[in-house]
């Protein structure tokens, strides 16, 4: 990082001597472009948060109102109670996201360990099979898997969404394996000579070293469950088991039945904002983890 910075500083010094009008124009153009692009990326979400605060007469105003005065803060409270969103939020977190996160971290860590830290005959063949499964579209297995869960009597429960998370998945195994491979084998060998079993080595030595990678797995698993719509759409029928995403889709489908018709859109945007908020907070607190995780999934194995 410091090398890069000094190289950049050096380049800057060299440039400073001959800064021409063209250079300044280029800089101005670059920042203008960045600002215009930033605006177009952020405006839709700004519009969501602002629309959530509008009074009925502000919704249809032309030209559109960019900042509603006075903001109608009560939209949030009212919208949240149009439907049983407290229950949906609890379902999403306690029945779905947290169990999936735990299962995903545990199973993927163990499997990735087996694929990278132990040398055994046939390992690399099985791993390439594991990688190949990433190409299979979920639709191919969707019908039989649904039938399996139906026969088990698991439809209309969270089991079909949660249980598979405890059996690892190729993408995450691949990512974690990349991390595990960076740790020198001598570390494990030394522990083996001391008579430590493989599980002890993993639990005591390796896993503590890859905590940031496990955080990436946990983050992606949690976000995946929080954002998931199709899984619950297939498996959950009873409204008392709905997730937030399903509740949001339900609100959108029944917009005209919402008590105060003129507030339908502010309500929809208010719930949307609340559903987005945790992902935004997670992102800001764990930005590094996110960025590193994505950068790592793209590296060649």
């Amino acid at each position: 990082m410091s090398v890069e910075a000094s190289v950049q500083a050096g380049a800057g010094m060299r440039r400073r001597k001959k800064r021409s009008l063209a250079w300044w124009l280029l800089q101005a153009g670059k920042y203008l472009l960045l600002i215009v692009l930033s605006a177009s990326f952020i405006l839709p979400l700004y519009w969501m948060a602002m629309s959530a605060l509008k009074n009925p007469w502000q919704v249809y105003a032309i030209p559109p109102i960019w900042f509603p005065v006075p903001p109608r803060w009560s939209n949030y409270w009212e919208a949240w109670h149009v439907d049983n969103y407290n229950l949906y939020a609890l379902n999403t977190v306690l029945r779905y996201a947290i169990p999936v996160t735990i299962g995903s971290v545990l199973s993927n860590a163990v499997v990735a360990y087996g694929f990278s830290r132990i040398r055994w005959p046939g390992r690399d063949v099985l791993f390439s099979i594991c990688l190949m499964t990433m190409m299979i579209p979920w639709q191919v297995t969707m019908v039989p898997v649904f039938i399996i869960f139906k026969r088990l009597g698991w439809v209309n429960s969270y089991k079909p969404l949660v249980v598979p998370a405890y059996f690892a998945n190729a993408y995450t195994v691949f990512m974690l394996r990349q991390f595990f491979r960076t740790i020198p084998t001598e570390l494990s060998d030394a522990a083996r000579i001391d008579g430590a079993g493989e599980f002890t080595i993993m639990w005591r030595i390796i896993l503590p070293l890859v905590k940031p990678a496990l955080a990436v797995v946990a983050l992606f698993a949690f976000m995946g469950a929080w954002n998931d719509y199709m899984g619950p759409l297939i498996y959950i029928n009873s409204t008392n088991l709905y997730t937030l995403t399903m509740g949001l889709a339900r609100l959108s489908a029944s917009l005209n039945q919402v008590g105060v018709k003129d507030l339908a859109y502010p309500y929809l945007m208010a719930v949307s904002t609340i559903v987005t908020l945790p992902t935004v907070l997670l992102f800001f607190f764990a930005q590094r983890t996110f960025i590193e995780g994505i950068a790592l999934t793209g590296l060649k194995g």
Binding site: F41, I42, P44, L45, M48, M223, W226, N227, Y229, T245, L248, A249, S272, V275, T276, T279, V280, L282, F283, F290
Partner: peptide
Amino acid sequence: FPAIVPATV
């Protein structure tokens, strides 16, 4: 930012 917003939203 838009990439982390739930598809439903």
